[in-house]
C-alpha cells in the first residue's frame, strides 16, 4: 500500500471504508472501483487490515481487564465532581454575604476618623474668646464658679468656717445661707 500523502486515492479509500464519504464522490469512486482491479485490491487489503486491527484491539482489551482501575477512576471522578459542586456552591452563595459586608466601603473608616478629628479641633478652636481684632483673648476665669474651699481653722472656733468663692450665683448664695444656718445651729448645740 502506498502512502496516502503521496497518493490521495488511499485517503479516499479509507473514507469510503469508514462510510464517511459524501454521496457524490462515493458514487464516483464506486464507478472507478468497478473498472479498476488494482483499486479493488487496495480496498480489500485496507478492509482486511482494518478488520484485523479492530479484532486485535478488542482481543487486547479483553485480555487486559481494567475493571478495578476503572471503578477506582470512576470513584475518583465522582469525588471530584462532588467537590467541584461544593466549591461552586460555596463560591456562589457568599456573594450576597460579601455584598452585605461591602456596603460600607473600606475608605469610609479613615474618612470618618479624619472627620471626627477635624470636628474636635474646630470645637476646641471655637471655645476660645476673641478680641475685637480677631486675635485670641486671654481667658479671664474670675467669674467662673469655683468649688467651695475650707478656710484654715480658727483657733477660737471648734468647727471650721466655710467660705464660698462663688458670690454671683443664686444657687451658691442659697447654699451659703443654708451652710450659715447649719453652722449657727451647730454652735448653738455646742
Amino acid at each position: 500500500m502506498n502512502d496516502v500523502d503521496d497518493n490521495p486515492e488511499q485517503a479516499q479509500l479509507l473514507l469510503y471504508l469508514a462510510n464517511e464519504m459524501p454521496p457524490a464522490p462515493r458514487q464516483a469512486l464506486e464507478k472507478r472501483l468497478e473498472a479498476d482491479a488494482d483499486l479493488r485490491d487496495h480496498l480489500a487489503a485496507l478492509r482486511e487490515a482494518d478488520s484485523s486491527l479492530n479484532q486485535g484491539l478488542a482481543g487486547l482489551d479483553a485480555a487486559e481487564p481494567i475493571e478495578v482501575r476503572l471503578r477506582s477512576a470512576e470513584r475518583e471522578t465522582v469525588r471530584s465532581l462532588r467537590q467541584w459542586h461544593i466549591d461552586r456552591s460555596i463560591n456562589q452563595t457568599p456573594q450576597s454575604a460579601r455584598l452585605r459586608v461591602r456596603r460600607v466601603p473600606f475608605w469610609l473608616y479613615p474618612l470618618t476618623a479624619a472627620a471626627v478629628v477635624l470636628v474636635g479641633l474646630g470645637l476646641w478652636y471655637l471655645s476660645f474668646d476673641r478680641n475685637a481684632d480677631g486675635t485670641l483673648a486671654h481667658h479671664d476665669d474670675s467669674d467662673t464658679p469655683r468649688m467651695p474651699v475650707w478656710d484654715a481653722p480658727d483657733d477660737n472656733e471648734a468647727a471650721p468656717d466655710i467660705e464660698l468663692a462663688v458670690r454671683d450665683s443664686d444657687s451658691f448664695g442659697e447654699l451659703e445661707e443654708e451652710m450659715s444656718k447649719l453652722i449657727a445651729l451647730s454652735r448653738a448645740l455646742q
Binding site: M1, D3, V4, Q10, A11, L14, L46, A49, D50, L53
Partner: peptide, 9 residues
C-alpha cells in the same frame, strides 16, 4: 487519513 493509513501498514 495519511497517519491512519501509515499506522495500519
Amino acid at each position: 487519513l495519511g497517519r491512519m493509513h501509515k499506522a495500519m501498514v
